[in-house]
Design a protein around this nucleic acid. Structure first.
Lengths: 97, 97
DNA sequence: TATTTTGGTTTATATTATAAACTACTTTAC
DNA sequence: GTAAAGTAGTTTATAATATAAACCAAAATA
């Protein structure tokens, strides 16, 4: 079996964690993602923007209890990309066919 | 489950492919790895050096049929690192516990 | 009202990946 | 034998990525 290409958007520890998390919860706040991933706010901000630019997540900014709130959701494209990534990753992990 | 750290040495498409390949064959020439991974020679040279510096592979340079030949083998540390990487990766792939 | 906290973004820097250029030969064709 | 093309890489320069530090704006708290 040949080594499959790994989507560079997803082949990043933090972005993969974000997408993985959003697939399991469908929707999450910036601060929640920050806690779960232990990322710095700056890094998280940048990576969320990249995932949004790629169309893998949607981002809604609003106010809640007087504070700004950023909510992220996975998109269908994001789900597809993740599934494909996981599938392609198999070619590296010893699950040879 | 929390997201585990992913060894940055292995979390690189090309280096992961090299290590994955060396685990399945135990020993390989530079040119063979190049063919299997479709990497450029320059990139491969750099990444092999990094894996060697990390102690994950051993590299022997010799001559064969008048030509220089670079042979790579996985080390026990490399096998361990790969196994740990695969294990940690599970935390991102939806195999929640 | 000064200080700290919340919830981020922007910018600068360090790290990493990749490609292009180069080295040092060997082989083959003239 | 010498010019051209091929083999097997390394080095260097550049582009992309990740990370940290600094910053912003408003809210809460002392």
């Amino acid at each position: 079996m040949e080594f499959k290409e790994l989507d560079p958007i997803l082949h990043s520890q933090l972005r993969l964690a974000i997408v993985s998390l959003l697939i399991s919860v469908r929707e999450a706040e910036f601060t929640f993602i920050r806690e779960k991933t232990n990322a710095t706010a700056g890094n998280l901000s940048v990576q969320i923007q990249k995932l949004k630019d790629a169309g893998y997540i949607s981002v809604v900014k609003q106010f809640k209890d007087n504070y700004p709130q950023t909510i992220c959701k996975i998109t269908p494209a994001g789900v597809n990309a993740f599934e494909q990534y996981v599938k392609n990753l198999q070619s590296y992990l010893g699950i040879q066919k």
